[in-house]
Design a protein around this nucleic acid. Structure first.
Length: 881
RNA sequence: GGUUCCAUAGCUCAGUUGGGAGAGCACUACCUCGACAAGGUAGGGGUCGCUGGUUCGAGCCCAGUUGGGACCACCA
């Protein structure tokens, strides 16, 4: 070992990563270069909710973005990656309320202002945690531009958008059935409702006709809502019930008369064909009610208890009331049967409680014109490019069937709706600021759906509504958005239509969609299962680089991935391999400097070969990055580093570094240093910490890998002849090893007596055997066996003499070796037969592309050659028996 | 009901416009040789869910089918 190394023999991520991120920040390397001569490349982070810590999904999401941004930065783009967080209205408010509840306090005890102050404190606390986590994962965002959805500029953008949409009739206020969360006591949009199959029941009951001529049977899953029934409906063409249409019926328990109406909404084949109509508690019934001018009787309070229109049930919780209603119906003999059934019930995404369809006055966004614009965009050349493409269908089908969007929320934490009502006249005013005589006006108490502000994120963070802002002009539209398929509807779709509406442009060119991270058993990670894995624990154990490698390696785009400690081990192993290869290079560099790197010297075939392989790897990886195929790119890097560089090139370089003269060593050191440098650059976007650490130790010029140039193909370094020659050499070596392994007896020194190469010695590859030489090798009793016969061109480049012979006598069991060779012969014969069959098929020769046919001919020749060689060896061995 | 994904080695998964089935882990044998034993070398293991079709040629394209998952809609 010729050089003292600071690097330990094992890769220790904790030591490598400590302090590195802070150094990058100190040097301000993540800031856009602002170089106007370069193309801009921008990404905005999907702002995480300030509700808590980040999970593995966030780590995945940000890692992918960081890989993209780091590569683009190295490629010279003027890159902006803008960080930020989302106030996450309902989610955050629910968390803070839960925390307050532990202290026995409700938000009403504090009042709106005080409560919001508490939430701001919470926000600061969690924002700090999130920034710490970002740092640990190593993401290269520009903190100078960090934004928060509730900060001043973004709030202005929200108000501006609201007012403009209101003035364009894209926002309206009205009384409709919405999804109501009785726990959070707020309205929810359709997509905030999660439908789950639950065990419920179908309650069959009878309503008596007012004229006493009998009764009709009705079935419902929500009997408590019958207290708000204002009609009973049948299908207009239902022959069974023609005589009932227009009659009255008595609503049991309430003892009021309600009409029997005919409406095509009723399905004759379903249930009894008679439906109770509750316009205030069901969207379909609401529509029926409108057609027939039915009263809307709302029987519930905002918290899900029955209101004072329900008589004896007043104050009961809705589920308590359900039981009571059923019991009373049974007492009256009106309960026919209870049929158990599994049905789909809406639950609040945030609080988990069962959502109540409820009549309520809310603000809505009129979706039809916005959706149309967004759909039309996808028919143009300038469409948003979804990766993988199939998610465009998901997005479009949602857009095509979208309903109006409820945007008001009965919460305190969020953007207050810029609408005021006159205290006396009730007149409505919508504007950026309160009306002048503000004392006479009262602002709408509601806030906006969180997604209303996040929909503006790609441009509101860039200075919009100031369209002359530098960032907006330079970095909008964004280039790429990275997010999970689970929020295409919530976020991606809304960014697209709002961006089109307000900037006239799509918000981003590409959307890279990834899946979810599951646990090792393939289950979703969830709090209730307790199977969540904290990314920080993974980083502490394996390092951020290993986690990033795993995350970018995990799966094909758009597919879910299972977290796996086995794979984390494999990731660590790979980095350890890189680490040790680098140690080897450094040990043999003496005081080698970057100025001494000279690739024009007398290179060995191995030198020329690895430089060629490097070029191919650069080309492949660059291409795959363009298509966001990081997993495939990683596989190429892995193979290049482990198989080509470590297993072959480093081993061959030892012959030079340990034995040759100084001049030869300098050339090898140059290649080692160059290839390592280029490899570290290629790896840096994926594993920024360890690559930077190693790079600092090897000869290099530049401040940091973060801003070092990304490798490009250098055609002058490629050498196809060297590739052919190396193929021969490698095959030779493998053949020798193969014999040894098969018969479990090592080969011996005479190998080197018979193999002469121009510039590469292969002893080191067979070195294991030397200790056996004395014991097993009897030079007087040598068997000659031909091993490899290479094409003449390659031969002349590599090996003197047309054939390689290995002396095997006394070293192997000839019978066993013959058995093994006959197996091999069968394999080659099979291949020859297959290829010959193909080539003798006129249809193949006529139809297949010329290149394919030519390739088959080459294969034929190659297989025949192998077949002959193996046959020859068998013959020779047989003479020895 | 609609859309969609998955089914490839014991396990987890790749497979890039159709042209000789791959990786990691696990397993077997051997190897402490001046980067790495969390390593090296060699090896075993697959009728690519099933059935048809298109094609000279299908893991890949088409139709159907089985099983599993996801999403959307509906569910009085």
């Amino acid at each position: 070992m010729s050089k003292e190394l600071k690097m330990p023999t094992k890769y220790q991520p904790q030591e490598v990563e400590a302090g590195r991120y802070e150094k990058w920040l100190e040097k301000d390397l993540f800031k856009p270069s602002g170089d106007k001569t370069k193309e801009a490349y921008s990404v905005v982070i999907p702002p995480p909710n300030v509700t808590g810590k980040l999970h593995l999904g966030h780590a995945w999401d940000t890692t992918l973005q960081d890989i993209i941004i780091r590569q683009k930065r190295m490629q010279g783009f003027d890159t902006l990656w803008l960080p930020g967080m989302d106030h996450a209205g309902i989610a955050t408010q629910a968390k803070v309320e839960a925390k307050l509840a532990e202290e026995g306090i409700s938000r009403y005890d504090l009042g709106r202002e005080k409560f919001n102050e508490t939430v701001w404190e919470w926000k600061e606390e969690y924002a700090a945690v999130i920034r710490e986590q970002w740092a640990k994962v190593g993401i290269s965002v520009d903190y100078g531009r960090e934004r928060f959805t509730l900060d001043e500029g973004l709030s202005e953008a929200v108000r501006k958008v609201f007012v403009a949409m209101y003035n364009k009739d894209l926002i309206y206020r009205g009384e409709y059935i919405i999804n109501w969360d009785p726990k959070a006591k707020t309205a929810l949009s359709d997509i905030e409702v999660i439908h789950k199959d639950v065990e419920g029941a179908f309650y069959h009951m009878t309503y008596p006709l007012a004229d006493g001529s009998g009764s009709v049977e009705i079935a419902t899953t929500r009997p408590e809502t019958m207290l708000g029934d204002t009609a009973v409906a049948v299908h207009p063409e239902d022959e069974r019930y023609q005589h009932l249409i227009g009659k009255k019926i008595i609503l049991p328990l309430m003892d009021i008369e309600i009409p029997i109406i005919a409406d095509e909404y009723v399905e004759m084949d379903f249930g009894t064909g008679v439906v109770k109509i509750t316009p205030a508690h069901d969207p379909n019934d609401f529509a029926v009610g409108n057609r027939h001018n039915l009263p809307r009787t709302n029987v519930m309070n905002p918290d899900g208890t029955m209101n004072d229109l329900t008589g004896k049930y007043t104050g009961m919780d809705r589920f308590e009331a359900r039981k009571a209603v059923i019991k009373d119906l049974e007492t009256q003999g009106r309960l026919v049967k209870i049929e158990k059934m599994v049905h789909s019930v809406g639950h609040s995404e945030r609080t988990g409680v069962i959502v109540e369809p409820r009549l309520s006055t809310q603000w809505f966004v009129k979706m039809e014109p916005l959706a149309k614009e967004a759909i039309d965009l996808q028919k143009t050349e300038d469409k948003v490019n979804f990766v993988p493409e199939r998610f465009e269908n998901t997005y479009l089908s949602w857009m095509e069937n979208v309903h109006d969007w409820v945007i008001s929320r009965q919460l305190w934490w969020g953007h207050r709706i810029p609408a005021w009502f006159h205290k006396q006249t009730g007149e409505l005013y919508v504007g950026m600021q309160a009306p002048r005589d503000s004392e006479n006006w009262e602002q709408d108490p509601d806030v906006l759906d969180t997604w209303f502000s996040s929909a503006l994120w790609p441009f509101s963070t860039m200075g919009w509504p100031d369209e002359d802002s530098e960032d907006f002009k330079r970095y909008f539209p964004n280039n790429t958005l990275v997010t999970g398929y689970d929020i295409i509807f919530f976020w991606v779709s809304r960014m697209i239509f709002q961006s089109l509406e307000f900037t006239g442009k799509k918000p981003f060119n590409d959307v890279l969609i990834h899946g979810l991270i599951r646990d090792e058993e393939g289950r979703k990670m969830s709090k209730s299962l307790g199977n969540g894995i904290d990314p920080m624990e993974v980083v502490d154990k394996y390092g951020a680089d290993a986690l990033r490698w795993f995350l970018s390696n995990g799966s094909a785009p758009g597919q879910d991935v299972r977290f796996s400690y086995d794979k984390m081990d494999a990731s660590w192993n790979f980095i350890n391999k890189i680490w040790n290869a680098s140690r080897f290079a450094l040990m043999n560099m003496e005081d080698f400097t970057v100025e001494q790197i000279d690739l024009t010297g007398n290179k060995t075939i191995a030198d020329r070969w690895i430089l060629t392989k490097l070029n191919k790897t650069i080309e492949k990886v660059t291409d795959l990055f363009e298509r966001f195929e990081f997993g495939e790119a990683n596989r190429h890097l892995y193979h290049f580093i482990w198989d080509d560089f470590c297993d072959w090139y480093i081993e061959m370089s030892k012959e030079i570094l340990f034995n040759e003269d100084e001049e030869a060593k300098q050339t090898t050191r140059s290649v080692l240093a160059y290839v390592l440098d280029q490899t570290l650059r290629l790896l840096h976007p994926v594993m920024p910490f360890v690559t930077e650490e190693i790079w600092e130790n090897i000869p290099h010029i530049g401040e940091s890998l973060v801003v070092a140039e990304y490798p490009v193909v250098r055609p002058e370094l490629s050498d196809e002849e060297a590739t052919e020659g190396m193929d021969v050499l490698m095959e030779l070596i493998r053949s020798v090893r193969n014999i040894r392994s098969e018969v479990n007896t090592p080969l011996s020194k005479p190998v080197e007596l018979l193999i002469k190469t121009n510039d590469v010695k292969i002893e080191s590859f067979l070195k294991n055997n030397t200790s056996y030489i004395e014991r097993f090798c009897n030079p007087e009793n040598l068997t000659i066996s031909s091993m490899v016969r290479a094409p003449e061109t390659a031969m002349s480049a590599v090996i003197t003499g047309a054939e390689i012979y290995l002396p095997l006598a006394g070293l192997i069991n000839i019978d066993e070796e013959i058995v093994r060779l006959e197996k091999e012969l069968a394999k080659w014969s099979g291949e020859v037969k297959r290829v010959k069959g193909k080539l003798s098929n006129a249809k193949f020769v006529d139809n297949a592309p010329v290149a394919v046919v030519e390739a088959e001919k080459v294969k034929e020749k190659e297989y025949l050659e192998k077949q002959t060689l193996v046959l020859e060896r068998i013959e020779i061995l047989k003479t020895q028996i």
